[in-house]
Every structure is written in structure tokens, then in C-alpha cells.
């Protein structure tokens, strides 16, 4: 028998399966009857208007929010790397990058160096967290997530507050990381323009599941256009999904 690492991965291996998930905050449903499957190597993007439950869904995946009904199943032994929406650090809490990376468990220094390099934060080990720029901060968070050698990388609006260049750079890095780690990526994003190019599968949320599929299919879905049409017309003057679907490469294992 082959050792685990050498075993060929089946193209349709399911990493996370969410079924009939509902989440309630104080009597009100913020998520209702959500079904979602994440496959190995897949890049899945969650989109939806503000307050549509994207972040809540992510928090349910990492165990921070308990479902009111339904289930979230993560494959046994799978490691999740989580990059949160910007982290607010209280100014009274002194914290260096080195200390932060080694929380809650001390890490092998060589592995820390490698993870920081891969996240583009190689020179920041000795820096103080509160002195980092928004982009540097996100790269440190990414490095910390990479230290778990994730099977699944979860990003919750990780580029919020970054400028356009910083955002594009961050996503290029995510793509490089995905290639080298062979992990699946599940991300929440507002950056429709940038993200759609890399997504295999788009899930559009609006408390319930609005529509899902390959980017071009979602883009042409009437539900999606009803939800985003106005916003897209205002902001971009064109539907970014329509613009970018030509660049989208089909992946063998896209759901």
C-alpha cells in the first residue's frame, strides 16, 4: 500500500460537505437551508450582498458559529488554514510577528521562515504587529494559516482595506500557494473583478443559496443578475463575470 502522501487523490474527493445548514442569530435566520460541497484542489468563491451570510457561513465552517439545523462535515484529518477579515489588535497588547506566528503552539523556526517567505512576508519576522501595513498584516495572517499545511485554505474577505494593486498581488500569491500546497481554497470576496478569473466554482448567497456554478453560468443566471445587476451597473458599468469568463480556464475537477 502506498503511504498516505503518495496515494493518488481521486479527482472528485469531497473535503467539506454542508447540507441543509441553517444558522439563527436571536430568532432570525441569517442562513437558511444551505447545501455546499468543496472538492480537493477546487477554488470556490462565495459572493453575495452585505449581510447575506457569507462570513457567517465561513464561521460555521471553522466551528465558531453553531448551526441551528443541518450539518457541516469536514473530512477526517483535514487541516484548515484560516485567514480572517482584518484583525483588530488592541493597542495595549504588544505583539511581534514572531510571537504571533508561534501562537498557540511553538513552530519549527525553519517552517516559520518558509511560510513567511511563501506568503511574501519573509523580512517581517522581527516586526511589531501594530507597525505593519494592511497588506503586510494580511500576508502575516496568510503565513500563519500556511503553517498548518492546510488541505483547505479559507479566506474571509482577506483583501478588505487593500488597494487594487495590493488586492491583485494578494490573489496572485494565493494562486501560487494553491499550486504548491495543492490545497482547496474557499474564499469570500467582494472583488468580483479579480476573483472570478481564478474561481472554479461560484456560490452566490443571499441568506439562502441564490445560485451556484461555474462563473459564466452564475453570471448569466437571472437570480444573480437580479441581485447584482444594479450594483454592477453602478460600479463597473459592465458585468465583471461576463468580462472575465473568457479568461476562465476549465479545470478537470471543477464541481
Amino acid at each position: 500500500m502506498l503511504p498516505m502522501e503518495l496515494a493518488p487523490t481521486t479527482p472528485d474527493e469531497v473535503l467539506v460537505s454542508v447540507s441543509h445548514l441553517s444558522v439563527r442569530f436571536g430568532g432570525e435566520f441569517v442562513l437558511e437551508n444551505i447545501d455546499l460541497t468543496l472538492y480537493r484542489h477546487q477554488v470556490l468563491t462565495l459572493i453575495g450582498p452585505n449581510g447575506s451570510g457569507k462570513s457567517t457561513l465561513v464561521k460555521t465552517l471553522i466551528g465558531a458559529v453553531k448551526p441551528a439545523a443541518g450539518s457541516v462535515r469536514v473530512g477526517a484529518g483535514l487541516r484548515i488554514g484560516y485567514v480572517p477579515q482584518r484583525l483588530h489588535l488592541d493597542p495595549t497588547l504588544p505583539m511581534t510577528v514572531k510571537r504571533f506566528i508561534n501562537l498557540p503552539h511553538r513552530q519549527d523556526p525553519a517552517a516559520v521562515e518558509r511560510a513567511l517567505d511563501e506568503a511574501g512576508a519573509g523580512h517581517l519576522l522581527q516586526a511589531t504587529m501594530s507597525h505593519l501595513s494592511g497588506g503586510q498584516f494580511q500576508r502575516v495572517l496568510l503565513a500563519r494559516a500556511l503553517l498548518t499545511r492546510p488541505d483547505i485554505l479559507i479566506l474571509d474577505e482577506a483583501t478588505q482595506g487593500l488597494d487594487q494593486r495590493g488586492t491583485a498581488e494578494f490573489y496572485r500569491r494565493i494562486e501560487a500557494v494553491r499550486q504548491s500546497y495543492g490545497c482547496a481554497v474557499l474564499m469570500v470576496s467582494h472583488d468580483l473583478n479579480v476573483v472570478m478569473r481564478t474561481a472554479d466554482h461560484v456560490v452566490c448567497l443571499n441568506r439562502t443559496l441564490c445560485c451556484e456554478g461555474k462563473p459564466e453560468r452564475v453570471a448569466s443566471s437571472p437570480d444573480y443578475q437580479a441581485l447584482f445587476g444594479e450594483m454592477l451597473a453602478d460600479d463597473q458599468g459592465a458585468n465583471p463575470l461576463a468580462l472575465y469568463r473568457h479568461h476562465h480556464e476549465e479545470r478537470a475537477n471543477a464541481g
Binding site: 464561521k59 471553522i62 465558531a64 484560516y82 480572517p84 484583525l87 489588535l89 497588547l93 505583539m95 501562537l103
Partner: peptide, 12 residues
Amino acid sequence: LMATMSRELAYA
């Protein structure tokens, strides 16, 4: 410390 810095990172 982890729980003080971020609830979500702690859960993760």
C-alpha cells in the same frame, strides 16, 4: 492570548 486576539482565529 489566542482568544484575546481573535475569537475566530481561536476557533480555527
